[in-house]
Amino acid sequence: MHPHVHTVYAFLDLVGTFAFAVSGAVAARQKRLDLFGVVSVAFTVACGGGILRDVCIGATPPVGLSDWRYLAVSLAASALAIIAYPQVRRLRQPVLFFDAIGLGLFAVSGAEKSLVYGQSVELAIILGTVSAVGGGVMRDVLLSRVPAILEKDIYALAALLGAAVQVGFIYAGWIDWWTPWFATAVCVLVRLASLYFGWRLPVFGDDARR
């Protein structure tokens, strides 16, 4: 892989870490957690999915624990959420906004890293999705909420689509600086469009008809 392209993927991973950390820190602030709670949730959201991915592909110790930049980015995002919380709150549903950005970035970088470690196409797409949704699931569990991927929102499906587009680009030989950004944009736009237009997956059972 060209060094420039590798740098793009590393940058994607760190930007995704920041976006997820902001979403976690804002959610923790909304739950009125203390300083330790805000930082802990931010780091868990930012690095939880990546740690799961790295353990699955044998990239140990996980980069989220071995690379100081991930902790530094999480701390910076926590500081932003604490210091500039009134400004961040002006964004419409800020947790969902930053979560959508992190979702796309992690789906793409997770799929690419899985391929680098010799995983199959199917596993790369699955682990890209795990990278994207793992931190959000941990956040929702910590904050006593039903995880988004278990509800009817289009969440994991958007991550799956972004990871699949990225893997498709790689196998087609279309590896350039723009390909990860395009795949990320597909995931983010599908997620945000589902929120804006109210797209939902089918729900089954008596409650779904009420």
Rank of each mutant, 00 (worst) to 15 (best):
R32N: 05
L14D: 08
A27E: 05
R69C: 13
F20L: 09
S40D: 11
R29M: 15
V38I: 05
W68G: 12
L65S: 07
D67K: 08
V39W: 13
G64T: 06
S40F: 12
V15M: 04
V63W: 14
R32Y: 03
D13E: 11
S23D: 00
A21E: 13
A21C: 12
A42M: 07
G16N: 03
K31T: 03
S23A: 14
L33G: 03
I57F: 00
F20Q: 07
V55Q: 04
V26W: 05
V39F: 14
L33C: 04
V45W: 10
G48S: 07
R29Y: 13
I57G: 02
D34A: 07
D34M: 06
L14I: 08
L52D: 04
G58C: 03
A46C: 09
T44Q: 11
F36Q: 09
A27G: 08
G58S: 02
A21G: 11
L14W: 03
V39I: 01
P61N: 01
V55R: 00
L33V: 09
R29H: 13
L35W: 15
L65Q: 09
R53Q: 00
L35R: 12
V39S: 12
R69Y: 14
C56A: 15
R69W: 15
G50A: 08
R32C: 02
L12K: 09
V26Y: 04
L52A: 11
I51D: 04
A25W: 13
G50P: 11
G64S: 06
Q30L: 03
T60G: 08
R53W: 06
G48T: 08
V26M: 09
P61I: 03
F20I: 10
G58M: 01
A19H: 13
C56E: 15
L14T: 10
S23K: 09
T60K: 09
A21S: 12
A21P: 09
F43D: 11
V55P: 10
V55G: 07
W68L: 15
T60Y: 10
T44G: 12
T44Y: 10
L65E: 15
A59W: 02
L52T: 07
G58L: 00
S40K: 09
C56N: 14
V22H: 12
A27N: 07
D67W: 01
G37D: 05
V22D: 15
A19P: 13
T17Y: 08
A25I: 06
V41H: 00
G49S: 08
S66N: 01
A21V: 10
F18T: 11
F36A: 09
D13Y: 10
R69M: 15
L33N: 00
F18C: 11
P62K: 00
R53C: 06
D67S: 07
A42V: 04
T17R: 05
D34V: 02
P61F: 03
G64H: 03
G50T: 05
S23F: 12
V39G: 10
A46L: 10
G50Y: 10
P61Y: 04
V15Q: 05
V41C: 00
S40A: 15
V55K: 03
A25K: 03
G64C: 06
A28E: 02
A28W: 01
P62C: 05
V45Q: 07
C47Y: 01
L33H: 01
A21W: 06
W68F: 13
I57R: 00
C47G: 04
G24Y: 07
P61H: 01
C56Y: 15
V55T: 09
V22G: 12
R29F: 14
A25E: 14
L65Y: 12
W68M: 14
